[in-house]
Write a protein that binds this DNA or RNA. Sequence first.
DNA 1: CCGGTCACCTGAGTGC
DNA 2: TGCACTCAGGTGACCG
Length: 287
Amino acid sequence: MPELPEVQTIASDLDDVVGGKTIAAVAVSFDKIVASDLNRFHKLLTGATIDSVTRLGKWVCFSLSGTEGPVTMLAHLKMTGQFHLGAWPEGESDWPPHTRAAFRLKGLPAENDTLFYKDIRKFGRLRAFDLMELEEFLEHLGLGPDPFDMEPDDFYKRLTSKKGRLKSVLLNQQVVAGLGNIYVDECLFASGLLPTTSACKLSRPDTDRILTEARRILAASIKARGSTTSNYEGLKGGGSFQKSHNVYGRAGEPCPVCGSPIEKSVVGGRGTHHCPHCQRGRLKSGE
DNA sequence: CCGGTCACCTGAGTGC
DNA sequence: TGCACTCAGGTGACCG
């Protein structure tokens, strides 16, 4: 379930390990994993050099120099996507379990010269674009800014212009990019706000508090290489921030602040965790 | 515009 | 031991 800190870790590991490498060959073992044209995917990426790997919301963004100009590969890992290094598969039986695509890289030892995209549930998608196609796709996505890039004024306007419940609005990637189920629950606990609060009724102190807590929690999680609950690790291993979760995955356990049992409910179709005592209405001015 | 539901998939966990 | 069942969350599509 990679969210912002996990994708940041994955991208930064990839940048270290495969940055500067040239793709000698591309193989796809499950066609649907490539959501842009498959022939063009092969054509754009084969022979291209990976200049850098960064994060865009929850997308992993490979910037490459292709044979005919700049190329971008965007990867969305959805629930169970991972990148791994291994040996190039010569036959179908050589593919590691659940791997869906392989990129053979030049200049690495043969036993580790291939970047695999692994995805148990096959929800993730890879796309390759030239500059114009990228621009078009990004416009279509309409991602909002990261919490780290967001001005408090802008954040207030974005949240209060939505009529939905706070949890759903924070999960909307067009409002703010990078938050997922885990960090929204943690952030709302830290902010003392109920997930079911109407976003449009929030005060300026409310939205300031949410932004501050989101930045604090996300930064701490990035430092811990993210949260490993299941099916997440970077090239250099998993994270440890799950140990710092206060409410996510802790239904029935005592709230670390007041001791009340953490409640689990469904909000916007997502499992939602909150403390019924610490999370109440909106904050008052000056709090 | 908004909420609810389903589809996309597989594995882990639970209860009988 | 095995089987049926539920659940996990990111996103897009669809309906009311």
